[in-house]
Nucleic acid binder design. Structure first.
Lengths: 210, 210
DNA sequence: TTCAAACTTGTACTCAGTTCAGGTTTTGCC
DNA sequence: GGCAAAACCTGAACTGAGTACAAGTTTGAA
């Protein structure tokens, strides 16, 4: 999530198009490190795996690990560059005509669609290594900076406090839905939970002024 | 916040009553370490002060620091034992007859009253050392475990998902109010912001079923 | 072929957090 | 007052995260 692939070649990298050898290697390395890390962590638990273990198992140096991931937790949270591109596309449109709550709902449901492959594994990791739950702010918080940037691109339609509250309430709904979902259930079920949470939480916030 | 004074003498310690020399010294040490730490951190910033610096300046060993505070951040977040006692008293009553949202509102407004002395300084620290904002989950999150325990003591009146959502929405309102408040304004103003946030966020959640 | 930019790596460092064995202080009790 | 046990403090030694940097290697383009 934190500026490596984003800033790498100026623009976001053309994933499906022809990439230089350099970029292809980088992507490979990223994926190798990540999948190695996830395998080790799901086997032994987050704290029982050191960055050194991960680097060694991925055939890379410890230093290199930290050029790909800003910290150990990021290897669990960060998006694959391909997903990242979809996520950026989802955020391109500030949905300016739409009331904030509706726009947020749309973006978060879109995000849920993107996470279909990752979220089940991630929840299992969290369940296995409670140390992750403590130290990190949950899967959802990784997207908060991007969302804040998105929010700032919308033309502000009034009360800042209300805007901030609406935003954080939507994030809370998201976090709650993730927490409530059992990863053994269908992903569709998760999306229903999320829809419910957003609907309930938004009931009082959906319309501009009270 | 994390089990030192709580578990020390079995019960919570009788602060105003006669305490043994041992407990008085412990409390003194706690306060010395804390105030020393806050002074240094507000002078130099969170990351520029090491635990060793704090311990040395407080006339105590590094090891001792970690018996009083579970980690470096806790020195900013943890409650003074006197405040902690008031906070526990506030949570004694599960407010069982009351709808969840109203009970939460009451507890959180009570918490706001307790924090009058601490919050302004704390916000200033956060403003000065952005590294704190990143790594920690905000002042509000310190109280979450206690609140969850309080929540679990209430007789559950229905839908777990809705309960969880209500809870996290109230926390979000609290966090938002803290973020929105300017510590140079009056504390009363903060409490108004918090009331507004709770009212707005709760508009859709206040009544049991939708 | 050549050169600059991008990437990797080992080394060496700082600091958070843990463990533990000994020394010191407090307390309850005689 | 004196004593033993419990509680407390401390220094030393350790693990592991994260950073800085200089030297080496690979890639892309001319």
């Amino acid at each position: 999530m934190t500026g490596f692939f984003q800033t790498a070649s100026g623009q976001r990298c053309a994933l499906s198009a022809v990439m230089g050898l350099r970029e292809r290697k980088k992507l490979d390395a990223w994926r190798t490190i990540r999948s190695t890390a996830l395998r080790l962590i799901s086997e032994r638990g987050f704290d029982a795996v050191s960055v050194e273990d991960i680097a060694a198992a991925a055939g890379v140096s410890r230093t290199t690990f930290f050029t790909y991931f800003p910290n150990k937790e990021a290897v669990v949270h960060d998006l694959d560059p391909a997903e990242l591109q979809q996520w950026r596309e989802l955020l391109e449109d500030p949905r300016d005509g739409m009331p904030l709550w509706d726009a947020l709902t749309e973006v978060l449901l879109g995000l849920a669609r993107l996470l279909e492959q990752r979220l089940p594994l991630q929840k299992r990791l969290f369940a296995q290594s409670p140390e992750l739950c403590q130290s990190s702010r949950g899967p959802c918080a990784s997207y908060q900076p991007d969302l804040e940037e998105w929010l700032s691109r919308r033309t502000t339609d009034g009360d800042d406090l209300r805007t901030a509250l609406t935003f954080s309430t939507a994030m809370a709904a998201c976090t709650t839905a993730i927490a409530a979902w059992d990863p053994d259930d269908s992903y569709e079920h998760f999306r229903e939970i999320l829809r419910d949470c957003l609907r309930w939480a938004g009931a009082g916030l959906a319309r501009p002024v009270s």
